[in-house]
Design a protein around this nucleic acid. Structure first.
Length: 263
DNA sequence: TTCCATGTTCCGCA
DNA sequence: TTGCGGAACATGGA
């Protein structure tokens, strides 16, 4: 799940459910999901604290505490859930925050590919990790978009997925954007015209916004989206073509063999 | 049993 | 320096 629209949905969910509530205590269920912070320190800081505000940049969710920020990355299988009764607890809870009102907020992660850490400054973190601009949060213009892709080698797909170039797109949304732009994911970046890049820019923005509008629920997205048939050999949701699969940058890419052209 | 999965990082090589 | 392939991480569904 967790690409930009999913993390944005987590953020809104967190804001709606968990901000400004007094934390009774917190429980690190599996310390492998922690970065540098120790379970003891994290639990100590969360105890009697409040979640004050939240920010998102790319696939990262930042949650403000007193003078500190909690950073959550969701990996491939991360999720947040706010609930009251313990029988609703998600199966793979790795961090559990218990509020004094009797409710709980669980960070769930089946495959544990995500990370939770404690940092001092959001901007400092983004700079240090060299994370690129967020298309929505940073209001990225088409001009800036051209500029950050300028003089880069490789395929358009790997550029879109590279968090250091642009933050938030993953495997599914990169494929989706290129599907809607009629370009094959293995097209060479330097062969794309300004018009191609402008199309990608537009589809990226409209696609991300549309998905956020629908809380990143795939079933609520238009039937013409690739994600409904993102499997080798399936029918193209847009034309009479068939879906093909190719490994690009170590990830499976899916595209229509008919309406998507390689440049 | 084997393959694959919405992510990131590290290594070796070109 | 940049980019790519492959592997590793840990878990479960098909």
């Amino acid at each position: 799940m967790p690409e930009l629209p999913d993390v944005e949905s987590f953020k809104r969910y967190l804001n709606k459910t968990s901000l400004h509530k007094k934390i009774k205590n917190a429980d690190v269920k599996n310390s492998k999901i922690l970065g540098k912070v120790s379970p003891k320190k994290l639990q100590g800081i969360l105890k009697d604290n409040k979640l004050k505000s939240s920010k998102r940049h790319g696939k990262n969710l930042f949650i403000e505490l007193n003078k500190k920020w909690l950073i959550m990355h969701f990996g491939m299988t991360g999720n947040l859930k706010y609930y009251k009764n313990m029988d609703e607890a998600p199966k793979h809870t790795r961090l559990l925050i218990n509020f004094t009102n009797g409710y709980h907020l669980a960070y769930d992660s089946q495959r544990m590919l995500g990370k939770i850490d404690l940092i001092n400054s959001v901007n400092e973190y983004i700079e240090r990790k060299k994370i690129g601009p967020d298309p929505l949060e940073d209001n990225l213009s088409s001009k800036q978009f051209f500029k950050i892709l300028e003089n880069r080698k490789g395929t358009i797909k790997s550029a879109l997925m590279n968090q250091k170039i642009i933050a938030g797109l993953g495997n599914i949304y990169s494929d989706e954007i290129l599907f809607q732009t009629d370009l094959r994911p293995d097209s060479a970046l330097k062969k794309l015209s300004e018009k191609d890049l402008n199309n990608i820019y537009k589809k990226m923005n409209s696609g991300l916004k549309k998905s956020i509008e629908k809380n990143a629920e795939p079933e609520d997205l238009p039937e013409t989206y690739l994600l409904h048939n993102r499997k080798e050999g399936k029918d193209c949701p847009k034309c009479s073509g068939k879906i093909k699969k190719k490994t690009i940058n170590g990830r499976s890419s899916y595209f229509c063999n008919k309406h998507q052209k390689k440049k």
